[in-house]
Design a protein around this nucleic acid. Structure first.
Lengths: 224, 224, 224, 224
DNA sequence: TATGAATGAGCATTCATTCAT
DNA sequence: TATGAATGAATGCTCATTCAT
C-alpha cells in the first residue's frame, strides 16, 4: 500500500513538473506571438514534448492559455493582499501596491497585455469555456467567475487603501471608486504604452513617478 | 467631354464610397475579433461584396488594416492640433486634449486597442510592410514612419501644453516628459480597462475625472 | 447603301486589326509563361485593351491560344508547300525544308514548344474527356480536324521529298515513313533541347548540321 | 532496446513506403496535367491521403515535383553510366544508350516532357528554389546545379562513346559535340512527337530505327 | 463597342486536434 | 504514458469570365 502510494505520488509529481514545464514554454510563446499567432507546434517544440503529449496535460490551446492567466492573477493577488496588512501609512501602502502591480506587469508584460487587451478574444474564449464548464468538473472555478473575482479582489485592495487614506486624512475626500479607477488606469496605461517610447523607466523610477503624480497631481498649489 | 468627365467622376465617387464601406465593414470585424481572427470572408460578407471584390479595392488583409489605423491616427491628430492653438489656459487645453483623445478611444476603442496592444502582431505586419513599400509607390508614407510620426506629434502637443502651463505658473515645475507620459498613460489605461468595470463613465465624466486627478492628485494639501 | 458598306468594311478592318493585335500580345505572353501561367490580365495589359474587350474578340483564353497555334501551322505549311514545288534535287529540297521548319521553330520557339509538348493541356483544351481516355485503348485522343490536317500536310511533304529522293536514287531505299519520322524527330529535338546547351547554333549552322547528319549518318563508309 | 529499434525501423519503412506512394500518385497526376494544372487535392486523392498528410511528407507542391525529377535523372544516369564501361564496340554501345534513354523517355514520357519542355515554369521554380536552398539544409544538392550536372553527365557519356568510335575508326571524323547534339535531338524528338502519329513503334523498333539512321544517314553511298 | 467592376470556384498551405501504437 | 502520423476545416488570395453601363 505504502509503496503504491509513493509511486503514485512520484508519478503525480512528475506530471506536475511536466505541466509546469509546458506552461512555461507556452507562456514564452504566447508572450512572443499572442494567442492567435502562437501554434501548438511551437509550444510543443519549446516544451520539448510531442504535440500529442501536450494534449494529455491540457485539453486545448485555450486551456493552456487560461491556466497561464489563472496563475498570473493568483500571484499578483497574493502579493497585493500582503501589502494591505502592513502597518504603514496609506501613502506608503500605495507605493508598494504600485510597485508590485508594476513589477508584475513588467515581468509578464506580454501575458498581461493579452489579458487586458485581447478583450474580444477573451470574450470568445470565455464564452466557449463557460459552456464547457457545465459538462466537466474542472479543477478550478469557472474561469469567467474566477477571473472577475481575482480582478475584483485586487481592485478592492486599492479601494481599501485609498479609503483608509481618506479616513486618516492623508488623502483628499475623493470618491474611492473613482480614485481607484484612475490609479488602476495610470499603472496599466503606463506599462502598456504603444510603440512610442520617449524614455525608458526602471521599475523603481516608474513607481516613483506614478506614486508622485497620483498623490500630488500637476497643479500648483496656492498657499494662503 | 463634359459628360464623360461627370460619369468618370461619379464612378470615382462610387468607388470611394465602396472603399469606405469596405473599410467600415472591416473595422467592425477587426474590432470584434482582432486582426488574426478576422477573416476576409467575414469582412466580405459584412461589406456585402464578394471576397474577390474586396481584393480589387485592397491588396491584402494587411492593407485594409493599415488603411484603418492610418485614418484613425490622421483624425486624432487633426483634432489635437487645433487644441494647441486656442487662447485658453493650459488647464483648459488639457481638458480639451483629454476629451478629444478620450472620445477617440471611446469611439474606436477596439481599433485603438489593436494598435496599442498587439505589439508583436504590429511588429510583424509593419516589418513585412516596410519591405513592400520599397517596391510600390504607396499613396501615403511608409507606415512605420508615419505611425511613429503621428504618435509623436500627439505626444508633442501634450508636452507643449504642459510646458506652457509650467511656464505660466499654472502647473508645478514637473519634468515635462514624465508628466506627459503619465497623462498619456492615464487616458490610455482608463479607456482600456480589462473586463472589470465597476462603474461606467460617460465621456464627459471620464474627462472630468482624468482632468481632475491629473491636476490635483489625491493627496491632501496642507495649508500653512 | 454604299456609305453603309464602307463603314461596315472599315469597321471590319478595325476589328481584324484589333484581333491581330490581341493575338500578338497573347502570343508574347504565352511564349513567356506557357498557357497556364499566362493570365488574361497580362494579355489585356500587353494588348492595351481592357480584359472585357478581349472577351469580345475571343470567347475564352483557350480560343486565343488555338487561334495562335492555328496561324502558326498555317504559316509553316505555306512555306513548306512551296519547297516541294521547286525543281531542285531532293537533297536540296530537304535542306530547305529543314531550314524553314527550323526557322519557324526558332522564331516561335515557345509557342511551338507548347504545341508539341503540352499534350495533356492540349487534351483538356480540346475538350477531350480524360475519362474517355481510360476507356479507349487508343493512346491518343481525336484531335480536331484542322489540326491533324495541317500537321499531316507537313508530314506528307517530307514523305514526298524523301520518296522522290529514293526514286531518283539520291537516297537509300529506306522506309519513307520511318525516315520522315526520324527527320521530324531530329528537327524537333534539336530545337527543343532542355536547359542544357553546350553550344549555340545559328539557324544556318543548325540547318547544315541536321542536313548533313540526316543524309550521311555517323558511320564510316568502307569503300570496296 | 532491440524491440524499439525494430519498431522504429518499421515505422521508417512505412514512412518511406508512403512517401514513394505519394510520389507515384503525384507523378501520375503531374504526367496527366502538367505542373500548373495538377492540384494538391488530386494528388492527395490519388494517394489516398488527406491533403494535410501530403504536407507532412513534402513541404510544397514544388518539392514533390522536384523530388520526382530528381529521381528521374538519378535513374537514367545510373543506367547510362554502365553502358560506357562495357567492352563492346562503339556502335553497340550507342545502341544500348539509345535503348536506355529511349526506354526512360518511354516509361516516364510525361515527366520527361515537363522537364524538357516547360522551360519557363522550370526557370521560375528553380529560381525560387535556389533562393530557398540558401536558408535550409537540403538533403540533396541545390536543384539547379544537380540538374545541370546530371544532364551534362549524360551528355558526356554520349560524347565519349562517339569519340571512342571516331578513334577506333568505326565512325567518321565528325565533331563530337555536334554529333552528340544530333543524337540527343533525335532521341528526344522521336519520343516527344506531337499529336501526330503515323505509326507506332515499340521500344525495340524505335531503338533500331534511331540507331540505324544515326549511323547510316539516308544518303545513298556511291561506291567507287 | 468598350470597359471598370464584380464574382464563383478554386488553390496551396496551415493548424488545432485526434488516432493508433 | 508518450508520440508520430493523420486530418477536417479553414484561410488568404487568384483568375477566367460575366455584368452593367
Amino acid at each position: 500500500m505504502k509503496k503504491r502510494d509513493l509511486r503514485k505520488e512520484r508519478e503525480q509529481l512528475r506530471r506536475d513538473e511536466n505541466k509546469r514545464f509546458i506552461l512555461r514554454a507556452a507562456e514564452k510563446i504566447f508572450a512572443q506571438k499572442g494567442f492567435s499567432l502562437a501554434t501548438m507546434d511551437e509550444i510543443a517544440e519549446e516544451a520539448q514534448f510531442s504535440k500529442a503529449t501536450i494534449y494529455q496535460y491540457f485539453k486545448s490551446k485555450r486551456e493552456i492559455f487560461f491556466e497561464i492567466i489563472y496563475k498570473f492573477f493568483e500571484e499578483v493577488h497574493q502579493k497585493i493582499k500582503n501589502v494591505q496588512l502592513k502597518k504603514t501609512s496609506a501613502e506608503e501602502k500605495l507605493r508598494e501596491l504600485i510597485f508590485y502591480i508594476g513589477s508584475y506587469y513588467h515581468k509578464k508584460k506580454n501575458i498581461a497585455r493579452i489579458i487586458i487587451m485581447e478583450k474580444s478574444l477573451m470574450k470568445k474564449l470565455l464564452h466557449v469555456n463557460s459552456k464547457e464548464q457545465t459538462a466537466t468538473s474542472s479543477p478550478h472555478p469557472p474561469i469567467p467567475d474566477f477571473f472577475m473575482v481575482k480582478l475584483n479582489d485586487i481592485f478592492q485592495v486599492m479601494c481599501e487603501i485609498i479609503e483608509e487614506g481618506v479616513k486618516t486624512g492623508e488623502f483628499r475626500k475623493v470618491d474611492v471608486l473613482d480614485a481607484s479607477s484612475i490609479l488602476g488606469a495610470m499603472i496599466r496605461g503606463f506599462y502598456f504604452r504603444g510603440p512610442l517610447r520617449n524614455k525608458e523607466y526602471s521599475i523603481e523610477e516608474s513607481t516613483d513617478l506614478l506614486h508622485s503624480f497620483f498623490l500630488n497631481g500637476i497643479k500648483k498649489v496656492r498657499h494662503a
